[in-house]
Design a protein around this nucleic acid. Structure first.
Lengths: 161, 161
DNA sequence: CCTGGACTTGACGTCAGCGTGAAGGTTTAC
DNA sequence: GTAAACCTTCACGCTGACGTCAAGTCCAGG
């Protein structure tokens, strides 16, 4: 039941530094033993798990506070309180807007790439030399066939940036 | 044509601080007049516009460098060089992954909200009092009909978080 | 001459969520 | 009895893209 900071960190898969940080924020205050050591119980583990779950969803620490307060108030779940539901709703709206923004940007960037690739293909039909670095204003001295620097097969949808 | 930092900032809709910052990064170096004042021309304005456009797309400043270099090398557009196209492609992949993450999270949060709303409706069918703040572990003393603190009509899709 | 505006460099502050020591006290195991 | 492992409180560092003073320089108008 009772445990010290290192043990709690291990059980929650986080670090002691993180727990101390949460305490600084008043998010997860700890009781103390006689020697000054922080001491936690299973309830604190639940609070912490709630925080980490929301963090994984991209919630800021302050946004997790209503959930934590709700749990500490004795409710069965962190989202049993209206304040928590409000945070859910605000987050959903935020996510929707963010997703819409990103999709708009994705479309724009995709369009720019397509256009730029077309223009590159037009300017360099056979394969003139890349004149990046040393090139006077839009003149065109491209007699010799080129080499090097070809687009990597225009492959989309890779992963892990 | 030639202008000082304040004028360029105005024309690009940014601040002098930003321009000095770009210069620190070597992104937009300035010539100097006799008195030490930075001086820019229309070419610099174009470079700056390129940077700002990409910034609006969420590109980091370092990611704009290939575009700026490309323009400065005399190419007609910032994305006329292979290095710029690569940045486009990497950004697209990044955007796709980010969008996918957010959509997954949106689904999870949406699910949590739905579940929590159901549970709230189940626990409080007629309208028992919200016992957030002061509530001993999951007991249930809810005789009197409640008031106050109702969810805002569960409205989704608002804006500007 | 003097005021005011635009310019200069330098350097610290902001936001978030911790990481990473330093310097020292406590407990535990052998 | 001593080393290892744990704990404590500072307190600075990191990332990005600037904001915000502060103190001094430069130039034009009245």
């Amino acid at each position: 039941m009772a445990m010290r900071i290192g043990e709690l960190a291990r059980q929650a898969g986080t670090t002691t530094r993180t727990l101390r940080h949460y305490e600084e924020l008043g998010l997860l205050p700890a009781r103390r033993t006689g020697n000054g050591y922080r001491t936690y119980d299973d309830g604190d583990l639940r609070l912490l798990q709630q925080i980490r779950t929301l963090q994984d969803f991209g919630f800021g620490l302050e946004e997790t506070r209503p959930f934590v307060d709700c749990l500490r108030a004795g409710h069965p779940a962190g989202d049993s309180c209206p304040a928590s539901l409000d945070v859910y709703r605000r987050k959903l709206a935020e996510l929707d807007e963010c997703i819409a923004d990103l999709q708009r940007i994705r479309a724009e960037v995709g369009g720019q790439l397509a256009r730029a690739e077309l223009e590159a293909a037009a300017d360099v039909p056979g394969g003139p030399p890349p004149l990046c670095a040393f090139a006077p204003p839009p003149g065109h001295e491209a007699p010799a066939p080129g080499h090097e620097a070809s687009p990597p097969e225009h492959g989309r949808e890779t992963g892990t940036p």
